[in-house]
């Protein structure tokens, strides 16, 4: 299992990196932590002509927290998020979700940008980006653009990133201090990709009714998804056992996961329902 032949470059600016990507007509790939790409190279499922390493690019490894939310540079690693105590307040949902990503060694290398660009439908970071309505900063030959998560994820391991583009930042909207939230996933073993997971947050109005519910699911479709019907059911209502049961049933109906070697689709759908019910209960505590 030796990777195929490729060239390697480690430019020092984003502009150089973009130019290198553009030079290969779609046959170059970005590598940073490499924790998703390297296995694909080992299996020769990816055969790029050129790898463009972001190692020497500056200013992509910061976690910036401000009034406009949390900005994660593309090179921010899982261990960086894990050790940033500010996030427990600034974005507890992110902090909780990232605890479930892979294992210790991978967490020292794997990056936010890599995970989002790889777009595994079971992965936590794309799920959080989708659930929270993140905005992606993307730089390419034509300049920079910003794309909403809902438009960014386009299919299984597919995004709107063009061959000459680099994802440089993931921006999560501001997090009110009183926000209710939960993240739950179920994997066969600790650190495995989730068989299904849910991320949710909502705020309460003065009367204790749910407003602005965001409910996302991973592992149940070809990309991370929002459960709009569940959100609609929650908004404007008080959370109680009846609402939880109804939302859970709605979640089960709103997904149609494919079957694979690890589980039939029906199991994943039921799992989303179970996790949603548990997550809503947890969010109320």
């Amino acid at each position: 299992m030796k990777p195929p032949i490729f060239e390697y470059a480690s430019p020092s600016t984003v502009a150089e990196a973009v130019a290198l990507l553009a030079s290969k007509d779609g046959n170059a790939k970005v590598i940073s932590g490499g924790q998703s790409l390297m296995p694909m190279l080992a299996f020769r499922l990816a055969t790029p002509e050129l790898l463009v390493d972001l190692k020497h690019l500056k200013n992509l490894d910061a976690i910036s927290i401000g009034e406009d939310g949390v900005r994660l540079g593309a090179k921010v690693r899982w261990c960086d998020i894990e050790s940033d105590a500010r996030l427990a307040v600034s974005h507890p949902l992110l902090a909780e979700a990232i605890k479930h990503v892979a294992h210790y060694q991978i967490r020292n290398r794997g990056t936010v940008g890599g995970s989002v660009a790889h777009a595994d439908p079971s992965a936590e970071m794309p799920g959080i980006a989708m659930t929270c309505g993140a905005r992606m900063t993307i730089v390419g030959s034509a300049g920079a653009r910003i794309e909403a998560a809902a438009d960014f994820f386009t299919g299984p391991l597919q995004t709107s990133l063009q061959p000459d583009e680099i994802l440089t930042e993931v921006h999560l909207p501001p997090w009110p201090a009183a926000r209710r939230w939960a993240f739950l996933e179920f994997a066969r073993r600790k650190g495995d990709f989730a068989m299904a997971g849910i991320a949710l947050h909502y705020d309460l109005d003065g009367a204790g009714r749910i407003v602005d519910a965001h409910v996302g699911a991973i592992g149940v479709a070809d990309r991370p998804i929002r459960l709009a019907a569940v959100e609609a059911m929650l908004n404007g209502n008080r959370l109680d056992d009846r609402l939880i049961a109804a939302a859970s049933a709605k979640a089960r109906q709103s997904v149609d996961p494919p079957s694979d070697i690890h589980a039939p689709g029906a199991y994943r759908a039921a799992l989303v329902a179970t996790l949603l019910a548990r997550g809503l209960k947890k969010s109320a505590v």
Binding site: Y8, S10, M38, R109
Partner: peptide
């Protein structure tokens, strides 16, 4: 830091 050396290229530890 602990890393998996099969998931890194030698050229990346320059």
């Amino acid at each position: 830091e602990a890393v998996r050396s099969c998931l890194m290229l030698a050229v990346q530890v320059q």
